[in-house]
Nucleic acid binder design. Structure first.
Lengths: 344, 344
DNA sequence: CTGAAAGCGCTAACAG
DNA sequence: CTGTTAGCGCTTTCAG
């Protein structure tokens, strides 16, 4: 701990301080190859004494191996992606691989830029949210020659591997549940379409499922901006104002669903008798609302874990695993906001 | 877009394809130095045609410049750090600098490991949450010879620059507000102490502030795990059960505060008449609760932005800015859960 | 078990 | 405006 931050230390410094060749120092520090107990000790002591931190830039260039995994997600400000990242971290913890995050703000061109940036570090793998990318981005990912896992969504054509759920089916399943309970005048509230493909697919699934029973969605509203409780309140108030006869509200995320729930409780509206509600994601944070919101678990943690496992497996030199296609099955978590008496 | 992902392309390939020297290709791609319009065009076309992505590993090694900023935070699973990261992103967006995140799970030794990993990439700067680090971590940061910004908290000795708020003062201020409104039987609920220094400092500030008025905290309870509404409910129920005479509850974050609020509303307890409540953070997400929770804004976005600005400024070659010490002043956001009639 | 030589892909520094 | 030369700090490979 002697070096006061001028020129960063190099292997050569450790070599000089320990009287051992650079090569052997390198072997000790990477725990690679056999080194006698005695020299190992000398090296370790010298390195610690000096406060040497290896230069991975140089190491990676020499070894043509970069222990980084690029993780590209649209946002960090809602509850969903942080949990995915947590899953990825859990798996990569203790392995040589290290995740590096990039954020796209749900913008295609920004995604392209971020991917370009990330790929220029020659990571060992890429985990990217969604199946919709610019042509250039798809080409880059193909050409990178590294494992690519697209996550969250399985409704589409993956570049390589994919881990997620079918949002279309999630919408469809919710439609079935709604119909089964005898609701028929449905309103939908969600994020602005062009931004969020997965919300769009759920909406399409819902529409399709209801159509099978001859039901059409009566009202819909979309917002942009952050998903706060207040947003759910406002939107619900507005929608019910215009469509007083609605008997079910499907929200594209739990946060606005919770806002709606609180609003309806304020208004003393009978839930789930007069109006039923459902959200999406299964956000643990919201356990503890006055009523438990019916929702669909989006398997975020598990998706992160599975994606990281694929990259990890494929990054092993001896592995020639083929692309994986993992479709998780989200289950509806029945809360107190959907009638249950008529369930089989 | 012809290369089907075997050997990654190099400058040499672009050079060959365009008939321009590697050096000039490099200049074009980096927009550095003057290149004629004609050759620039040739190079750009060749690069695009091939789908070349530069190798930053090699570039950084050669130029001894790494455009990465290491950002080390304890957690991504609550609302606070994602917002800090958003602020950092906002500032770094469009600059050559790119943030790279690491997560420590509030563990000192993990923080040390993560910092070591990060520093081994020779980033242009480090942003790290908190002022409490292992000795080894502090030494590493000193020796790295790069700008270091410790964020969130200003109660302590910074290594280099610091941006944050005084959590001790936040606790003190809340104590004053509480006293002013005539509350006197105070309960505190928060995260387990050893893990979260900032929550601890708020607690200490509160204790100190109350002590000045001769008031002692009557009840306290700490939890570990994620901050969900349900946790706030449970803890509040338990605390009130044991201490029915409490008239004010201070929570170490808004989430459990909101849980407590919902619980008390369920119980038809008069807020803020019989019991007052306050949380901490100023989480926007929770706008829309039946009552607006009194809280202290922790200036997360602004902290992220300011920290990134410091790194950015210092990374400029011509800048020899000295360490900054930025203490933001958090204001109490008075909601509906603290009596206000007696405010001056 | 240890060392010497060569070079990873790029860019600084210099020449033209 | 363009090209040449010499490394960046490490690891691979091959000899001892």
């Amino acid at each position: 701990m002697t070096n006061r931050g001028q020129r960063p230390l190099t292997l050569r410094d450790v070599s000089a301080a320990s009287g051992v060749s650079e090569m052997t120092v390198s072997r000790v520090l990477r725990k690679k190859g056999d080194v006698s107990q005695a020299t190992r000790k000398k090296v370790l002591e010298a390195a610690k004494e000096l406060g040497y931190v290896p230069n991975q830039i140089a190491g990676s260039l020499a070894s043509q191996q970069v222990n980084l995994v690029a993780v590209v997600v649209p946002s960090l400000s809602n509850m969903v992606f942080p949990e995915v990242l947590t899953g990825i971290n859990q798996i990569l913890e203790g392995t040589p691989l290290q995740p590096v995050f990039g954020v796209t703000d749900y913008m295609r061109d920004k995604e392209e830029r971020v991917l370009y940036e990330m790929l220029s570090w020659r990571p060992s793998g890429v985990i990217v949210a969604g199946l919709e990318h610019s042509d250039a981005a798809v080409a880059m990912l193909y050409n990178a020659g590294i494992p690519v896992v697209e996550i969250m969504d399985t409704d589409g054509n993956p570049i390589d591997s994919v881990v997620g759920i079918s949002h279309r089916k999630a919408g469809l399943d919710m439609a079935k549940a709604i119909i089964k309970q005898g609701y028929s005048r449905i309103g939908f509230m969600g994020t602005s379409m062009p931004l969020d493909h997965r919300a769009r697919k759920r909406f399409e699934g819902l529409t399709e499922g209801l159509a099978k029973a001859g039901i059409e969605i009566e009202a819909r509203d979309f917002y942009s901006g952050s998903s706060a409780l207040a947003k759910g309140r406002e939107m619900t108030a507005a929608m019910l104002n215009q469509n007083p006869d609605l008997d079910f509200l499907y929200y594209s995320n739990d946060m606005i669903g919770a806002g709606g729930l609180l609003y309806l409780l304020d208004k003393n509206i009978d839930i789930p008798g007069q109006i039923g509600l459902a959200g999406f994601n299964g956000v643990e944070l919201l356990q503890g609302l006055p009523r438990k919101l019916t929702t669909t678990d989006s398997c975020r943690l598990e998706i992160g874990r599975a994606a990281a496992k694929i990259i990890l497996e494929r990054s092993k030199s001896d592995s020639n695993q083929s692309p994986q296609n993992i479709t998780l099955t989200p289950k509806i978590t029945y809360g107190d906001t959907l009638r249950r008496n008529m369930r089989s």
